[in-house]
Design a binder for these strands. Structure first.
Lengths: 110, 110
DNA sequence: CTGTCATTTCGATGATAATAAAAACATGGA
DNA sequence: TCCATGTTTTTATTATCATCGAAATGACAG
């Protein structure tokens, strides 16, 4: 994952409603939830919810699949893995964030 | 780390200039860099840089210490650890993001 | 085809963010 | 003290974001 998509993914999660949506989708697993159910559980108006889902989908954090008349959104765990990996590699020096010791690993991004 | 501070930390990193600043500070280690040096290396105007550093500091991602006439900013690795931990626990189900086993076909209907 | 339900798009509005020039605020040396 | 330098605030401008009602789109059942 490079800088630009990392910023996009972080920005997608850096919003209370969207983070709540994503966490809910993580919780329910690969099956996901349809838009109406998400809105009902988080108390988000349809238009607002659609807006946030579009941003999450655009950032690659969620996938959408049509099932009957409903559209089910589910968390994309690979994308999440990518974000965690990016942060770990680029912002922790590759380790689970060491205790401020000599660090000379260089980042692999330009 | 709870939801609100997680959003704040993610928002602080969800900006190209700030992410670049933070990565630079991670790279140079605990010693950090003074504002002028950061600005010189990233080509950011003083006022803009101060604005972003304030946001990073406010989110707890960087620490500032005065040294002579200069103010050195350094990455706060614990805070970074906290973010990674939050994402892993809340958005990956506690695991390093599960395998692609239960993953269905990805039919994004954008 | 037609009606209905689920979701998205449109249009508008208030809120927040990023940027930079200029002024103000430190801090340390002369 | 006074000056020079490093950093932050102020002020203003511009751009982007979050929200919602209303209208439009899309999908299925009959």
């Amino acid at each position: 994952m490079e800088m630009k998509s990392a910023v996009a993914a972080l920005a997608a999660l850096a919003q209370e409603t969207r983070l709540a949506i994503f966490r809910l989708l993580v919780e329910v697993g690969p099956q996901g939830l349809c838009v109406g159910d998400i809105g009902a559980r988080l108390r988000v108006a349809p238009a607002t919810l659609s807006f946030h889902l579009a941003q999450l989908a655009n950032a690659g954090l969620v996938d959408a699949r049509q099932q009957s008349r409903f559209i089910f959104y589910s968390a994309n765990f690979e994308a999440m893995n990518g974000i965690v990996g990016f942060l770990t590699e680029n912002c922790c020096g590759g380790k689970p964030c060491p205790p401020a010791k000599a660090r000379r690993r260089k980042s692999t991004i330009s």
